Amino acid sequence: MSRLVAAVHVVTTRTSEGRTGFTATAVVSVSDSPPTLLVCLNRRNHSAPAFRRAGVFAVNMLAGDQQPVALGFGGRNDLAGEQRFAIGHWHEGHLGIPVLAGAVVVFECRLVEARTIATHDVLVGRVEAVTLGRDGPRLAYLGREFLVV
């Protein structure tokens, strides 16, 4: 799997317990009518139950200079939960969930289906809001390394 090049995203949500999120490369467009995205989340991730409960999530595609955000939400610096939001500039999106300022694009989604497949939850979300950010280099992941493309 490490040979698959992928864009890097931080997927976020909010529940009554607070904000949470994780770094993801397994994000794909499912349909454009209605606009729908698929996100894969390892069930061992501490935030996995929150995504099912919240019913909404944001997919923030990272710009080339946002590697610290990817690392923070990827668990590489021992930050958890709300602490992760100290990295980057966050605000509340259209659906009341955290969105990242400076992201290439943010898709705010309503969860329409969640399935467990092997070690992951597959979350399918209908896109309800899109925010286009700056155009420029993006963060990618290949061979267990970040690349700016």
Rank of each mutant, 00 (worst) to 15 (best):
T23K: 02
T25Q: 09
T25R: 02
A26I: 13
V27K: 05
S29H: 07
V30L: 14
V30W: 10
S31T: 08
S31E: 09
S31Y: 14
S31C: 09
S33E: 15
P34R: 15
P35D: 04
T36L: 13
T36R: 05
L37Y: 05
L37K: 00
C40F: 01
C40D: 06
L41G: 01
N42T: 06
N42C: 12
R43D: 00
R44D: 13
N45C: 13
H46E: 15
S47L: 05
A50C: 03
A50Q: 13
F51C: 01
F51S: 03
F51N: 03
A54R: 04
G55N: 07
V56D: 01
V56H: 08
F57H: 06
A58Y: 11
A58E: 09
A58W: 09
V59W: 05
V59G: 09
N60K: 05
N60V: 15
N60C: 11
M61E: 13
L62I: 14
L62C: 04
L62A: 10
G64E: 10
G64I: 12
D65C: 12
Q66W: 09
Q67V: 10
Q67C: 03
Q67W: 04
P68Y: 07
V69G: 03
A70E: 04
A70H: 01
L71H: 11
G72A: 15
F73V: 09
F73A: 04
F73E: 09
G74A: 03
G74I: 08
G74N: 00
R76G: 14
R76E: 10
L79G: 05
A80C: 06
A80M: 12
G81H: 12
E82K: 11
Q83N: 03
R84E: 05
R84H: 08
F85P: 00
F85Y: 01
A86T: 13
I87F: 09
G88Q: 07
G88R: 03
W90T: 00
W90H: 07
E92H: 06
E92Y: 01
G93P: 06
G93R: 05
H94D: 14
G96R: 01
G96M: 07
G96D: 04
G96E: 02
I97F: 02
I97C: 00
P98A: 02
P98E: 01
V99Q: 07
V99L: 08
L100C: 11
L100I: 14
A101F: 15
V104N: 12
V105P: 01
V105F: 06
V106N: 10
V106R: 13
E108C: 09
C109Q: 03
C109H: 05
R110G: 04
R110S: 06
V112N: 02
V112R: 14
A114H: 10
A114P: 05
H120K: 07
H120R: 01
H120Q: 02
D121I: 11
D121R: 03
D121A: 15
L123Q: 00
L123P: 01
L123W: 08
